[in-house]
């Protein structure tokens, strides 16, 4: 199925991220590799074209504090306003990179052909390793996830004095859901949520560990240390789950015993 120009552009920009970061510049460079007739002349798509392809609201101080004057409106239309770079193109690139990370993780589990806990472990390790080439830009990427996607007028969450945690939670939840699904998890009801909460927590903690500043370690050492943490967290959460199940079974046994005693007493 043919993909749209923005989609092609995002895919072409993915290999450029380690060098050019999660920026509009990566997309600008990628536009030079678009197939004809979409190939623009050098130096590639302009900032305004990219802003049009991946729209986002102007930065908050520009929109929320006052109405635009006639001069500001004209400057905005001409692309010569003094506003800072809009985040739409970079955010779109982050989203595509995250989606590619999930595809890579799912592909790895299917390739290895393991399911259950072994599949979960393989997928988590692959997803952690996926971060390694862009480790230096990972903080920037996750910060971009929290940037407002709407104006304060259309979404009250844009008025929050701190970045909304929803995009980060959604990012972790998607990884957890894909992991659970592809590793054959068929939990039902509350267990469906518990299994995803467990996997999301493990990946979230692993990502935090990966982001924590440690100048003494190289990127590959940081990844290795995070993989060890993943194994530890998987093991601990599994033993905790067994304890809870054991406690549940014990409570059930106690309840049934009391019911049996009640019946024997003629109640």
């Amino acid at each position: 199925m043919a993909s749209s120009v923005p989609q092609q552009l995002l895919r072409l920009a993915l290999p450029l991220i380690p060098k050019s970061g999660f920026t509009a510049h990566s997309l600008q460079l990628a536009s030079l590799s678009l197939p004809a007739p979409h190939t623009p002349p050098a130096p590639g798509y302009t900032t305004h074209t990219l802003n049009g392809l991946f729209p986002s609201p102007p930065p908050l101080p520009y929109t929320s504090t006052h109405s635009l004057s006639r001069e500001e409106l004209k400057a905005d239309a001409q692309g010569s306003s003094l506003e800072t770079e809009r985040v739409g193109p970079a955010m779109a690139l982050v989203q595509e990179w995250l989606a590619e990370g999930r595809r890579d993780m799912v592909g790895r589990i299917r390739e290895v052909g393991v399911r259950g806990e072994a599949g979960v472990r393989e997928g988590l390790r692959q997803r952690v390793r996926y971060n390694e080439p862009v480790l230096g830009q990972l903080v920037q990427a996750l910060a971009l996830l929290g940037a407002p996607t709407t104006t304060a007028l259309s979404s009250p969450s844009a008025l929050l004095p701190f970045p909304s945690p929803a995009p980060h939670l959604s990012h972790v939840a998607r990884i957890a859901h894909d992991l659970a699904k592809v590793s054959g998890d068929e939990s039902q009801g509350a267990d469906w949520y518990l299994s995803r909460a467990r996997l999301g927590t493990i990946y979230g903690l692993a990502e935090l560990h990966l982001l924590s500043p440690s100048n003494a370690l190289t990127p590959s050492e940081r990844v290795e240390s995070t993989l060890e943490l993943v194994d530890t967290l998987l093991e601990r959460s599994r033993s905790m789950q067994k304890s809870v199940e054991g406690a549940g079974a014990f409570a059930e046994w106690v309840g049934k015993s009391w019911m049996g005693m009640g019946r024997s007493l003629g109640l």
Binding site: K181, E186, Q188, G189, A190, W192, Y193
Partner: peptide
């Protein structure tokens, strides 16, 4: 429905309990 919810990748209700 347990099978259908897995097949169609549908989130179960959060109010199960």
């Amino acid at each position: 429905f347990d099978k259908l919810i897995t097949q169609h990748d549908v989130r179960p209700t959060a109010l199960y309990p």
